[in-house]
Design a binder for these strands. Structure first.
Length: 271
DNA sequence: AGTAGGACCTGGTGGC
DNA sequence: TGCCACCAGGTCCTAC
């Protein structure tokens, strides 16, 4: 998402803003929000965990627009005169100089939008308490093993905890556990050094592949052109309940862990 | 400390 | 075809 947004919007000035769903604006109103953004240019776009950060500037002034797309939010970028169908789930639009628009589409309206000064945004608990970036060099396999060592919760819950590793969601957590041959209910502190190494490798490989294939789209995700991601081509367990495990042919099972579904192979993922 | 359950929303799917 | 129950990639809150 961020790569696409960077390519298409960096350096452009915001000339208009509209929002039809006040509840997604967590610290402003549809009335105050536009005037806070108009005139600012998009200087940089980054990401921390699942939060997308737009760094904006106008003369000496700087602001950050934080957007968390939650489960179903995604961005669509269009040029003036685009013939693409109007998406009925667009709830926020940034109109850029030159006629380009950046729209936030979200069927379930769970997206979260926050606007503020750099210090305000960076101090927010949703950013401050985030854990390691899974692909950063600082998350070594040794460090991952240490992190797991102090957690008595199930490994699945721990992988989904953004305060430990930031950015993994339900699909990739299941995928990573299958590749690591670790059962999702295994208490995290009981994983072996070898398993931690497998987990570390699977985490890196799964996410790198997912990025290369531009996302999963097992449900709603679309890129900024409205296209689906291709991760389904390499997906191994998520959503394959009842189908044969690719390693041992035993049917994939699905259980609930912390209210979310977990898919795994009961034979090759060790409890 | 950890987890379950509900809340926030809408739409897709499968069963009858 | 229509209706209904159930399910959903995230996170936050309360209650146990």
């Amino acid at each position: 998402m961020v790569d696409d947004l960077r390519k298409k919007t960096l350096g452009r000035k915001i000339v208009g803003v509209s929002c039809d769903t006040p509840r997604i604006l967590k610290n402003s109103t549809p009335r105050s929000f536009p005037s806070c953004l108009i005139g600012f240019s998009i200087k940089e776009i980054t990401r921390r965990g699942k939060n997308i950060l737009f760094y904006l500037s106008l003369d000496e002034k700087e602001k950050i627009l934080l957007i968390h797309p939650k489960m179903t939010g995604h961005f669509l970028v269009k040029d003036k005169g685009s013939k693409k169908a109007v998406n009925p789930h667009v709830h926020l639009v940034l109109y850029l100089e030159g006629g380009r628009t950046v729209s936030l589409s979200d069927v379930r309206k769970f997206s979260k939008v926050l606007l503020g000064e750099r210090e305000t945004i960076e101090a927010l608990p949703e950013l401050r308490y985030l854990g390691y970036e899974p692909l950063s060099a600082t998350l070594t396999r040794t460090r991952l093993k240490e992190l797991m060592g102090i957690e008595r919760r199930s490994i699945k819950k721990v992988l989904l905890d953004q305060g430990i590793v930031a950015g993994l969601g339900n699909i990739y957590a299941d995928e990573v556990l299958w590749h690591s041959r670790v059962h999702p209910l295994r208490p995290a502190h009981l994983i072996t050094t070898q398993e931690a190494a497998a987990l570390h490798g699977a985490l890196r490989k799964t996410l790198t592949t997912a990025l290369r294939l531009r996302g999963a789209s097992l449900r709603d995700f679309r890129d900024t052109e409205g296209r689906k991601g291709n991760y389904t081509r390499v997906r191994v367990v998520y959503g394959r309940e009842g189908e044969e495990c690719y390693r041992c042919a035993v049917p994939v099972e699905r259980i609930k862990i912390g209210g979310r579904s977990a898919h795994f192979c009961p034979r090759c993922q060790k409890r």
